[in-house]
Structures are given as structure tokens and as C-alpha cells.
Design a protein around this nucleic acid. Sequence first.
DNA 1: ACCATCCTTGACACTGTCGTCAAGATTAAC
DNA 2: GTTAATCTTGACGACAGTGTCAAGGATGGT
Lengths: 192, 192
Amino acid sequence: MVGIRQFDEDEVIATALDVFWRKGLHDATMLDLAAATGVQRGSLYNAYGDKEAIFLRAFDRYARQFLEAAGNALSHGDAAAGLRHFFDMIIVNMTDGSPPRGCLTTRTALDAAISSADVRQRVQDMLTRLEQQIAKVIGTAPGKRSVADANRLARVIVTYTRGLAVMERAGYTRKQLREMATTFIDAVVGNA
Amino acid sequence: MVGIRQFDEDEVIATALDVFWRKGLHDATMLDLAAATGVQRGSLYNAYGDKEAIFLRAFDRYARQFLEAAGNALSHGDAAAGLRHFFDMIIVNMTDGSPPRGCLTTRTALDAAISSADVRQRVQDMLTRLEQQIAKVIGTAPGKRSVADANRLARVIVTYTRGLAVMERAGYTRKQLREMATTFIDAVVGNA
DNA sequence: ACCATCCTTGACACTGTCGTCAAGATTAAC
DNA sequence: GTTAATCTTGACGACAGTGTCAAGGATGGT
């Protein structure tokens, strides 16, 4: 058929997200996207302009999902329990798939040098929002922590999640990552 | 001149390391390497075979330098002071240059999906050795820490250094990274 | 019915990069 | 001085990926 859009945009972006997640912005080609979505390359160009435009939409979808999941996990129980759930969630998130797909944000961040300002901005926004969510949960903990301390600690926690994402790429298993997260939580928050 | 090797191998590898550090294994091209070293593409192919072979040599050089510097930093004062020097070192290391060149190991790790087994192995070796160095220093701390605990904590510290490398790519400044390192050390080790 | 609109399709040109190779040139060995 | 070895050089072919475009055709509005 010709003349009217043949595909469901939401479905295409969801599939594109999967492709980008597995291959990264840089390595995923328009041909990959066309094959995965079943939409011809020309149609994708017509609909979105270029690969980066598709990526931005896919990343927005990812960020929305991720931050919502993070919020849910963080609100389980007290701050320490919330963090444990949160780390569980991100570890499953990045080790899912075969081979494991890793963390899209981290992968994208590492390509900063060859990315557009738009892409870099999305990554920063994502990390900032995550930091704010964590700070909020930590700030409500009974410990006598100042707001500034909570913010600083939240940033450290975000940083550690990035570290786990790198370690996953380096070959550490889900089980190892879980132990690393537990050790971290015990050391940083368990005794607060 | 022709007939005998026109370049100093050590110099070429050192320059290649600089190129790879700034651009990454994937994005650095043989043309980049040829331009930076002053050695023609054909000569590089003749001498080393392919880009990856050059990278492996460059990475070995990097790993040697880095681990030596890490060892030196870690042996300043007690465990806590050593860690502080160590983090200072790696932060300067990754924020050096304009634009900052980031962390080669982390960048390489993120390309794991498209890298050869050789490359992945180097990254793992590097992280393992670093972990061992840190565990050694931590294990000697006066605190009543078991060897297993020291090993676990060392891995957490390595992971955090990877997190810092990601955050650098995300746009955080040297100053911010230093604060993040300080907060981490205080939380994890300061009260041990 | 007709027409303008808009999507699809396949082909095309272009670029960047890789890896190869034959020819040329210089050195070291004998 | 001759010869063998081997490094350098520039050109070449192959390939992958990008972005563009004209032609084709269905749809919805009038």
C-alpha cells in the first residue's frame, strides 16, 4: 500500500529503542532499523529525517520508562530498602537480553565526543533527574543528613550506577554486579 | 628514504596511544594514525597488520603507565590518604587535554560488543590488576577487615572509578568529579 | 469523478574507510 | 659491486553507510 503511513509510530520507536539499546546510536544503522521495524529506509528518512531524530525519540521513551521504574523501585520501604530495589532494577535492566544489552545511557554518554549537543543534553537530563529522585528518597531518611549531603550522596549513587554499567560491559555477571551493589549500599548507606 | 624502517616504534605507539585515547579504538582511523605519527598508512599496515594490533600495543603501554601511577598514588600515606591520591590521579588523568580525553579503558569497555576477544581481555586484565592493587592497600589498613571484605571493597572502588569516567563523559568538570570522589571516600572508607 | 496530497519504493551518487599490491628505492651482507 | 631483503609510496578495488530523489500509487476531500 502507498499513500498513507503504513506503520504505527509508537511501535517503530519501541523497536528502534531495542535496536539502539543493543547496538548503540553509533553502531546501529538505518538498515538495522529498517530490518527490525519492517519499514523501508526511505520511509524512515521521510518520516523522521535522520537516524539521530529517531534516536532522540527512542531515548525519550527509554528515559521515561527508566525514570518511572526507578521511582517505583526507590519507593519500596525505607531509603535503604528503596536503594536495594533500585539497584536490583538497574542490574536486571542492563543484564537483560542475550547477549546482555547493557545500559543505553552509559553507552550514549561514552559517545559524547561524536554526538550532537541534543544527544548530550538528553544524557545529562537523564542523569540529573535520576539524581533528584534519589536525593529525594535519601533526604527523607531518618538520619540527620543535611540537604546538601543528600544531594552529594545522590550524585555518588548515580555515579556508582554508571560504574556498574561499565563493569557489565567488562564482562561481570548479574550475580557479581549484585554483590558489588550490595557491598556498596552497605558501605555507603547501611551505616547511616 | 626507503628500505629500512623510517620511524621509531616506541614513538609511533606513544602517538597512537594519544590518538586512541582521544578518539577511541572504533573512531580512530588508520588515516588519523598516519597523520599523527607521520607514517603512511601502508607502512603502518606493513609494520603492524591492522588497526587492532596497533591498539593492543598502545593499550599495553597505557595499562603499564596507568597501573604504575596507580601504585604510586596508592602508596602515599595510609589507606585513606592513598585512595585520595589515587582518585586525584585518575581524575586528572581523564580530564586532561582539551577537550578532555576521558578514560581509555572505560571507552574501550563500552565498545565490548564490537571488540575482539583480545581487546576485551586487556580491559578485564586491567581492571583485575587495579582491583588487586587496591585490595592490597586496603587490606593493610588497621581496621578489622577480612581479606574477603577488602576484595569486595576494592571491586566497589574500581567500579566507582568507572562511574567517574562515565560522568566525565557526561560533562561533569574536574572540580565536580573531585567532590564526588571525596564524598565517596568519606562515605566508604573514611569511617572504616 | 477528479485532484491534490502524501507515503512508499528502489535506484543513485557520495563519502569514508579498509586492506592490498606492484613498483620503486635504499641498505646491509657478502 | 652485486644481490637479496624489506620498507615506503601511491594507487586501486571493495564495501558499508548515508542521504536524496523521481516515479508510482492509494487515499480523502471536494
